[in-house]
Design a protein around this nucleic acid. Structure first.
Lengths: 339, 339
DNA sequence: CTGAAAGCGCTAACAG
DNA sequence: CTGTTAGCGCTTTCAG
């Protein structure tokens, strides 16, 4: 039989109210009775029912996490760190991988509301949120005044934690230009990051070079396969380039694969830069030159922000946007300076 | 103000019981009243409170998932597939990454019980479960009769989904031997899989060769770094080997890195085999020869088994152990047959 | 300090 | 078919 607070009260010869008190350590309870109760708890192996508790205090101590794709190393690492930090603060995670599907995202959001998560961390990028119809689920979250922080840019009215992708991309492309490259391709797109593409364009313009649209590939993808087939496409089009700035490391690894299959050596013939500095970046061959984000610090900030807004969710607060600097990590995939 | 079933009832001019009925679609309700209620639900934008419901029906429709390390590509992929399949059946996931820490595992388990998850999928391998003291949390799960299925071998009395690592490892090592290798090292250990090590040993013995213990590395790790430093150690010891059978792909990638840093060419000088066939296996250079598990089928089986045992959790059922065959995938890291 | 009692929002008999 | 009512296990006034 399942034991409840009632059995404990009986065992300890007190009322359930008192048991509740020592369980939550709030009100003062005489030492001897507290001991008596704790003993009973242990003896009966009592586990308080979190559900019943949640119903009253209206807090589930649960956070919903929405990521686009868990099997992507970047999101996996981010999720791991988030779950670790949040756990330390007493919040387990309900994790949902949206597969970039807006409908899924909406269903998951609804589920979060039904289950009364205390907060949501939003890392998905299902589609263009410019379209107001695509944002109904975000409105729902707001209506239920559920705390939220987002790792996705371009969301108004929401706490955001962002990497400075614009600057990161500029630095990466500048590095390429400094190495003497003039014809630099880009494999990116909306699924990866708009700002990284902007940074790429800006860096080229700043240096007085011409942006060649035929060297830019922008689908709504972010996988190995995407990098691979994009290079194939570039090659098939006889595109003329000596470097590729990839929207992320995974794309870069796919790109390198395609390049080498075409007997194009990286970095000798073509230089490649990635973004994110995932684990694999330093382990693949050639090791990737890439842009590193301070991911742990970013998660720290996100968690703090989330907890802060959960605590004062009655008071309206101005949404914050915290931007973190990115850092270029130079490895092998671009070769050394040509001078 | 938060709207409840009460407001809906009022709006639709019926009792809360009737509202509950149409919400759950169980009992028969007159069509007109049903419509009336559904309208009210929509108008008020009512979201049923899952918590309150769970308290009564004693089902949270939630599954707890325990993995050793989410940032490991293998576990990330497994988690993604599990969450996808389970979601389709109506079960969201509380995900916990244990970092192979037994204490964490115990705390997470306790949390699962407090939160009354309906089932647990167990993929961790925190430590030697031979020690009875280390299993107290598993006992707890049983005591609360929470359904469970495990991807971890060597757990009695629990539904298990397993890959045939013994056979998989034998096939991998046999392949090496067929290629002419006689001095085959192994980087594995308990964190990876005991059976893979056994398979390695068996294959060697079957072929009338000698097992050389100085060629076997068995720490409680399973990371890139582990593969990397193990090869370094082997090399420092001037170990004599022409092939390495790695406990998993990630270790293999680390091993290759160390080999190449020592100017040892893979596969020309040393052949390397991995295990798992993670995404990266086909993308790294050289592409890994590895052992593939039918991971989707395994997850299907796990989910079916879990749901089955959740449904009839009153009746005692005999724990099942389902073993799936593994398949050798030949790529580049072992070279071709020497004949 | 402690107990009695009133719910939290919903489901499940049990009557009508 | 539908309404009434009794809880689920716990927290929280409100009195002692």
């Amino acid at each position: 039989m399942k034991i409840t607070i009632k059995e404990v009260a009986q065992e300890a010869n007190v009322s359930i109210a008192t048991v509740s008190r020592v369980l939550n350590g709030k009100d003062k309870v005489k030492k001897t009775t507290r001991l008596k109760i704790q003993e009973a708890v242990k003896k009966l192996n009592f586990q308080p029912n979190h559900i019943a508790r949640a119903m009253i205090i209206k807090k589930t101590k649960t956070i919903g996490l929405l990521v686009p794709q868990l099997s992507n190393e970047y999101w996996a690492l981010l999720s791991e760190i988030i779950q670790e930090k949040l756990w330390l603060k007493g919040y387990p995670l309900i994790l949902c991988s949206t597969d970039r599907d807006l409908d899924k995202e909406k269903i998951f959001t609804k589920m979060f509301i039904e289950r009364m998560v205390d907060g949501i961390i939003y890392c998905s990028t299902a589609s263009k949120y410019g379209d107001q119809k695509e944002r109904t689920h975000l409105e729902l979250i707001k209506r239920h005044s559920i705390a939220m922080v987002s790792f996705t840019p371009d969301m108004d009215d929401v706490n955001c934690i962002l990497g400075d992708h614009l600057q990161g991309a500029i630095n990466a492309v500048q590095h390429l230009i400094d190495l003497g490259h003039k014809k630099i391709a880009h494999i990116g797109g909306p699924a990866v990051s708009r700002d990284r593409e902007f940074g790429y364009r800006n860096a080229i313009v700043i240096n007085g070079l011409q942006v060649d649209e035929s060297l830019i590939i922008r689908e709504n993808e972010e996988t190995y396969q995407y990098g691979y087939k994009s290079v194939k496409k570039l090659l098939a089009n006889k595109a003329d380039f000596t470097a590729v700035f990839c929207g992320n490391d995974i794309i870069a690894i796919g790109a390198i694969k395609a390049l080498e299959e075409a007997s194009i050596n990286v970095p000798k013939d073509v230089a490649v830069v990635g973004y994110d500095d995932i684990n694999m970046a330093s382990l693949c061959k050639p090791a990737l030159t890439t842009v590193q984000q301070p991911i742990r610090e970013m998660v720290d900030a996100a968690v703090d922000l989330l907890i802060e807004s959960m605590e004062k969710n009655n008071k309206k607060q101005v949404p914050k946007k915290v931007v973190f600097q990115a850092k270029l990590i130079i490895r092998e995939s671009c070769g050394t300076y040509l001078t």
